[in-house]
């Protein structure tokens, strides 16, 4: 860990006019990054790719049944950050994660933790829809099968149906469940991937630019789905669309060069951000 980086759990609201040339090693996240009784809690989170540090000393709480969006310029570390929450970064040899990442108080990076089980609890939806090369039915049933969530075919049918209903896809696919998932439209495929994720009864869903490959109508459908799912799940969404962040999330986190600059209610971030870097990014002055 970089010794020069200070721990900065404290939140200083008075720091409202920080220079745009923000290069200091030690920094304080402005806004309200910490919560009471969070679902996920990160303290002094640092991520390295070999010697290069990608995330610097992040302190953030994510609330239960909350939609939080991560925004920031390309390469700011927002995707790297959410990949820490279900240990997707474990798949990258040179990636090293330090600090505390806890879900319901449990250390996500505990070496004894069953990663497969963690990824069932923390599902993920990617930029490009990635249905398995299997039938629509099997795409949704797959996770439930390997986790042994159902005892018989009737229960599995019920789970598949319910998952597809929750994703608003049931009426569109109920008569062709045996057809390949890859034959659906892009928006339908993405909803299928979300159905697959929620079929294993996760607590958290991570979404990494889930609409960037979709047209505006499919995007609106996914956004409506996010809104509905937020009643049951905690959702972290990485997006390059600031309008999307404004539409779907209640809280927004702004990352810049691997640092968590500001966390605030989404309405505040988009009308009156506290940090000048946030202002510059969301008004299209830095990209």
């Amino acid at each position: 860990m970089n010794k020069e980086i200070e721990s900065s759990v404290s939140v200083d609201k008075s720091e409202q006019s920080v220079s745009a040339e923000f290069v200091a090693d030690s920094y304080t996240t402005v806004g309200e990054p910490l919560l009471d009784d969070p679902k996920i809690s990160i303290r002094n989170g640092n991520v390295f790719y070999a010697e290069k540090q990608a995330i610097f000393d992040v302190n953030l709480d994510i609330g239960k049944q909350q939609v939080i969006s991560m925004i920031g310029p390309s390469g700011c570390g927002k995707s790297t950050f959410i990949r820490c929450l279900n240990r997707m970064n474990d798949t990258i040899d040179i990636c090293r994660v330090e600090g505390e990442f806890r879900m319901d108080g449990e250390d996500i990076h505990d070496s004894k933790l069953d990663v497969v089980e963690l990824r069932a609890r923390v599902g993920m939806v990617f930029q490009k829809p990635n249905p398995f090369p299997k039938s629509i039915y099997e795409n949704v049933a797959y996770g439930a099968r390997i986790h042994g969530l159902t005892d018989n075919r009737v229960q599995l049918d019920e789970l598949v149906e319910q998952s597809l209903i929750r994703c608003g896809l049931w009426n569109e696919v109920k008569d062709r469940l045996d057809e390949p998932g890859t034959g659906l439209s892009g928006g339908q495929q993405q909803r299928l991937c979300i159905a697959r994720a929620i079929a294993v009864d996760p607590q958290v869903i991570l979404m990494d630019e889930p609409c960037s490959a979709l047209d505006p109508i499919a995007t609106a459908t996914i956004e409506e789905l996010i809104n509905e799912l937020s009643e049951s799940f905690t959702i972290c969404i990485v997006t390059h669309s600031m309008q999307q962040a404004a539409r779907v999330s209640t809280r927004t986190a702004y990352f810049h060069l691997g640092k968590l600059i500001e966390v605030n209610d989404t309405a505040k971030v988009f009308t009156n951000p506290e940090h000048q870097l946030t202002e510059e990014y969301i008004t299209g002055r830095i990209g």
Partner: peptide, 9 residues
């Protein structure tokens, strides 16, 4: 332009 923050204000 869908302005935000200072631009929106």
């Amino acid at each position: 332009r869908q302005p935000a923050a200072g631009d929106l204000r």
